[in-house]
């Protein structure tokens, strides 16, 4: 993918793009449901939004963006046949993913220790279910990246054949993309 030539298909296996579109559709419905439900509970949503940790959300956003950037570098590395560097970039991306899980896990621990759960109120029902749904996608994305990293380490990819790396990368970027909307919608907009 260099120069001005355009490709007919997106990077990676086409199946992952069908999957990505399905995932985006689900998240899109979730976001719309949050926004329209909020119209009937503005006070409630504004009040409980203030209980969320924006600093933790910032760390998590930085972690996901950085992780996505590392994955871009991993793809660039394998395109010049550098499996070793590809592996290292993927490990760095996984470390950022792990940071996201730790920070988000700490947030959940804080909420649960205060007795907050899905039944607490409508805002928390959305907040917990939306973010946990995304949390599960981060875990799945990390499993995919780990599998790709291990194959890269064993020389399973090359400049000529690296569809697997691009496939894993596309999924991971989707996880990042969804968080880009989730962060302002749930933590900031009021």
């Amino acid at each position: 993918m260099t120069g001005m030539e355009k490709n007919r298909w997106p990077p990676g296996d086409l199946v992952i793009w069908i999957f990505i579109m399905a995932e985006l559709l689900v998240f899109g419905v979730f976001f719309a449901a949050y926004a329209f439900t909020r119209t009937n509970h503005v006070e409630l949503f504004n009040t409980y939004q203030l209980t969320l940790d924006r600093n933790a959300a910032l760390i998590n956003t930085v972690a996901l963006i950085t992780s996505s950037y590392f994955v871009v570098r991993a793809v660039a590395a394998i395109r010049v046949d550098d499996s070793r560097r590809c592996f290292h970039w993927l490990l760095a991306a996984l470390a950022m993913g792990l940071l996201f899980l730790v920070v988000k896990g700490a947030e959940y621990h804080h909420h649960f220790s205060q007795g907050i759960n899905l039944n607490t109120n409508t805002f928390y029902m959305f907040y917990l279910s939306l973010t946990f749904f995304h949390f599960l996608h981060v875990i799945l994305g990390m499993i995919i990246l780990l599998a790709v990293a291990l194959k890269a380490r064993s020389g399973g990819y090359s400049a000529a054949e690296h569809t697997g790396v691009e496939t894993g990368a596309s999924y991971w970027h989707m996880v990042d993309l969804v968080w880009m909307v989730l962060f302002p919608l749930v933590y900031v907009m009021r």
């Binding site: 355009k6 997106p10 596309s170």
Partner: peptide, 16 residues
């Protein structure tokens, strides 16, 4: 993210 990280800037047609 779509254009530069996912690489869709280099894709033609609807996928873009």
């Amino acid at each position: 993210i779509g254009d530069y990280f996912m690489g869709l800037k280099q894709v033609a047609g609807l996928w873009r």
